[in-house]
Design a binder for these strands. Structure first.
Length: 568
RNA sequence: GGGCCCGUGGCUUAGUCCGGAUAUAGCACCGGCCUUCUAAGUCGGUGGUCGGGGGUUCAAAUCCCCCCGGGUCCGCCA
């Protein structure tokens, strides 16, 4: 809706600029606290035409003609600025559009592009910790945004099933007596918590005893040589661990369209073919038996090492094969990755270029979540498990529900606590820009105040509460004139534009911020404007407005992968 | 040492790509609002050299250069 208004302003302003005898390619339109949209074009023209900006603004203003059927109510001049305001038609059409489109409000027209979005792709060495949790939450939110923006999205989890780390775990299962290990952090059916015990202990033993290292290498060599029994064991270990990781991800409503196993690209020979091709390029050379690419020509100082001296391929090399496969199956490739992958990714992108792939993967990098005492590490056990965070979030949410709604039946209280706890964790992760570093602190992660999901969920529950006490009828949107009502409608009108820019910039935090602002506008309306106690037609119109707010709040929460509760 | 990212009130953060009108919110602190649709709410107040220094511009948190602090990576880990 807002886009239509903006386009209307654009065309009439362009007309006015020309009628006033100026030429401007950029109309300098922007958001403003003083108007619904404002132009500072007079500044730009001032230097070119040597006139005072105020005078230019006034001249342009005098030529403004608002066409019939436009969403522009009026324009005015404040100093050098030209301001524009929406009219009643804009507000009323917004309400009508939301009412008609319902849960589809905010969905953009279908696009032809097919997207493969890879996210999470954590190593199958143990449970997800809150640092790694940032990846799936950003990734899943982006998938939801892109789907709303009209793209066909295939979400993929790339399984690192053939590394040394797996060999380490396999060694551990074979050689370590489980009775000597600490109890798993989870007793019941969480295999990832079981696996990580072996992983940690095995790593300790490796650093203590070089013989262990040699044995692990032996296992890895057996695997690489294609020994069917070893391959089976690897597969079992990986599947087992991933089962536990998926259980955790299900708790925050994250699922994948496809799991892509790294080893498949080795087995089907595609990694070998890539090596052959790259070997023939002028960038390739052998250094102490290892195949490397010299990428200085592309501005990369460091050689890209493709194989170890024993000929075994490395992670990034195999990732080239995966990317070729992705570009074969999609128009756009997006990866969500930790910032430590930046160099590897630019090497990979360059290798793709050398292999003749024109397109580049778009990459969303995020910074790490560290603990006050330092960086998280699965191997060293310096972590806060995502499972624990989710449990704690549930517990704290339950306490809040108990305090506010002691009357509710137990299963209802637990249900709300689950919805609120999970929402709080997702929102907290996605509300800040991915490139910002986060220091994890329990009090901040589990803050249920205004910056968080419960604030938005609460607004939704309030809307539902009103709607449950009345039924919707035909209404006259022209009755909605209170400033609070107008503000709310304007905010709702932004939603499709928010989807568009979040999808374009791949920035989930835009949606989170919008959600908070929308909830705030609704809460202000809720407090100041009576709905059920309003009379006749006004009541009907306000009920319709509440229904619209409920729809947009539900849609935006859905975009964030957060459940919109009807009661809390 | 080099590359990339971050640095905005006591803490957390928006805005930076595409320069414009009093820099956005939350937490904390101070003071109002529940006989009125769920107060997980709402209204007001205190608090900012936008890391520092130069430069470009009519105009810089935003663009350019230098420096400082933190993160991250830098050939056989993933």
């Amino acid at each position: 809706m807002f886009l239509e208004f903006k386009n209307g302003v654009k065309s009439l302003l362009r007309g006015a600029v020309e009628a006033a005898g100026y030429e401007a390619e950029d109309l300098c339109l922007g958001m403003s606290a003083y108007a619904d949209i404002a132009s500072s074009v007079a500044f730009k023209l001032s230097s070119r035409y040597g006139e005072q900006p105020q005078i230019i603004a006034t001249k342009i203003f005098k030529k403004i003609q608002i066409p019939k059927g436009s969403y522009v109510n009026k324009a005015d001049v404040v100093g050098p600025y030209i301001n524009f305001y929406v009219n009643r038609g804009f507000l009323e059409d917004t309400i009508k559009k939301i009412s008609t489109e319902g849960e589809n409000y905010g969905s953009l027209p279908k696009k032809d592009e097919r997207i493969i979005l890879e996210h999470t792709s954590v190593n199958p060495t143990g449970p997800l910790h809150v640092g790694r949790g940032r990846n799936p939450i950003i990734g899943d939110t982006l998938a939801r945004i892109l789907r709303r923006a009209g793209y066909e999205v295939d979400t993929q989890f790339y399984v690192n099933d053939m590394g040394r780390q797996i060999a380490t775990i396999v060694w551990g299962y074979d050689k370590i007596d489980p009775n000597t290990l600490p109890k798993p952090a989870r007793e019941l059916g969480k295999p990832d918590h079981d696996v990580v015990r072996y992983y940690r202990r095995a790593n300790e033993l490796i650093s203590e005893d070089p013989k262990v290292d040699i044995e692990v290498n032996g296992i890895l060599a057996k695997y690489e040589s294609g020994d069917p029994e070893t391959i089976q064991i690897f597969k079992k270990v990986v599947e087992n661990c991933m089962l536990g990781q998926r259980q955790t991800l299900e708790r925050i409503d994250i699922y994948y369209d496809r799991f892509v196993w790294e080893s498949q690209f080795v087995r089907d020979g595609s990694v070998g073919k890539i090596l052959e091709k790259l070997k023939k390029t002028r960038y390739a050379s052998l250094r102490e038996g290892a195949l490397t690419l010299d990428l200085r020509e592309f501005g990369l100082e460091k050689d890209f090492v493709l194989t170890r001296s024993d000929g075994i391929t490395l992670y990034t090399t195999r990732d080239i094969a995966y990317h070729l496969w992705k570009f074969d199956h999609a128009d756009v490739v997006i990866n969500v990755l930790g910032e430590d992958q930046k160099l590897a990714m630019s090497q990979l992108q360059t290798a793709l270029k050398i292999l003749g792939i024109e397109k580049e993967p778009k990459i969303v990098f995020y910074s790490f979540v560290s603990l006050p005492e330092g960086r998280m590490s699965t191997r060293d056990g310096i972590v806060v498990d995502l499972d624990d965070l989710l449990d704690e979030a549930f517990d704290r949410a339950y306490i809040e529900v108990q305090k506010r709604r002691p009357d509710l039946p137990e299963n209802q209280k637990r249900k709300i606590a689950g919805i609120v706890g999970m929402g709080a964790v997702r929102f907290d992760t996605v509300k800040v820009a991915p490139e910002k570093m986060i220091t994890f602190r329990w009090e901040e992660a589990l803050d249920f105040e205004k910056q968080g999901a419960p604030f938005i969920q609460y607004a939704h529950a309030r809307a539902c509460s009103i709607l449950s006490k009345a039924s919707l009828e035909d209404f006259d949107p022209s009755l909605l004139k209170e400033p609070c009502e107008v503000e709310l409608i304007k905010k709702m009108a932004f939603f499709p534009g928010i989807v568009a820019s979040a999808a374009h910039d791949l920035k989930p935090n835009i949606v989170a911020i919008y959600a908070r602002e929308l909830a705030e506008k609704f809460n202000q309306f809720y407090l100041h404007i009576p709905v059920l106690k309003a009379e006749d037609d006004l009541r009907k119109a306000r009920l319709a407005l509440v229904e619209c707010a409920r729809i947009v709040l539900a849609n935006v929460l859905n975009l964030l992968g957060i459940i919109a509760p009807e009661s809390m």
